[in-house]
Simulated scan of single mutants.
Amino acid sequence: MNTVVDSNIKINKVFFRDEKVFFDLEDGREIGAPLKWYPKLLNASEKERLNFSISPSGYGVHWKELDEDLSAYGMLHYNQELNTQSR
């Protein structure tokens, strides 16, 4: 079975709970991911985490202070096991 995923998923709300970041989506879904997947958010203060803006288009979230950007599409397709980062 093939599932079509809309890359234009709009974010209505961003919130944090239980060491996770969540997006409430325009289509009624709520999606979330562990903060440990996003070290800049994990290591940020609560004040820094709450200082974000949802893009005018509604497709992404930006934390200017933290230089971090997330999208609903990216969160839906992100696979921590396949993601590697060189240090």
Results as ranks from 00 to 15, higher is better:
E26S: 13
A72I: 01
E26A: 11
I31H: 01
L25Y: 02
N79Y: 11
I31N: 00
D6K: 06
S71K: 01
N2Y: 09
N79Q: 08
G28I: 04
S55W: 07
P39A: 13
A72Q: 03
F15S: 14
R29D: 09
S7R: 07
N43M: 12
K64Q: 10
P56K: 04
W37G: 02
G60I: 00
V5A: 13
E30T: 14
V5Q: 14
H77F: 15
F52S: 03
S53E: 15
T3K: 13
A44R: 03
K47E: 15
A44D: 03
K40F: 09
L41P: 00
V21M: 04
V14K: 01
E48H: 02
R49H: 04
K13Y: 05
R17T: 07
N83S: 15
P34H: 08
E46T: 08
L41H: 07
M75C: 10
E26M: 14
E46F: 09
M1Y: 10
N79G: 01
N43P: 03
S45A: 12
K13G: 04
S71P: 03
L76D: 10
I11S: 01
R17W: 07
Q80E: 11
P34L: 12
K13F: 04
D24F: 03
P56D: 12
L42D: 10
I11V: 09
W37H: 08
M75K: 06
E81A: 14
S53C: 06
P56G: 07
G74E: 02
S57I: 08
K20H: 15
K20A: 15
Y78E: 12
G32I: 11
Y73L: 11
H62N: 12
K13M: 13
G74P: 02
N8T: 02
L76R: 14
L50A: 08
I11E: 01
M75I: 13
K47P: 01
E48D: 12
Y59Q: 11
A72N: 00
V14I: 14
G74K: 00
Q80P: 12
S86G: 10
F23K: 02
F52M: 05
N51W: 08
D6N: 07
S55V: 01
R87S: 08
N43V: 04
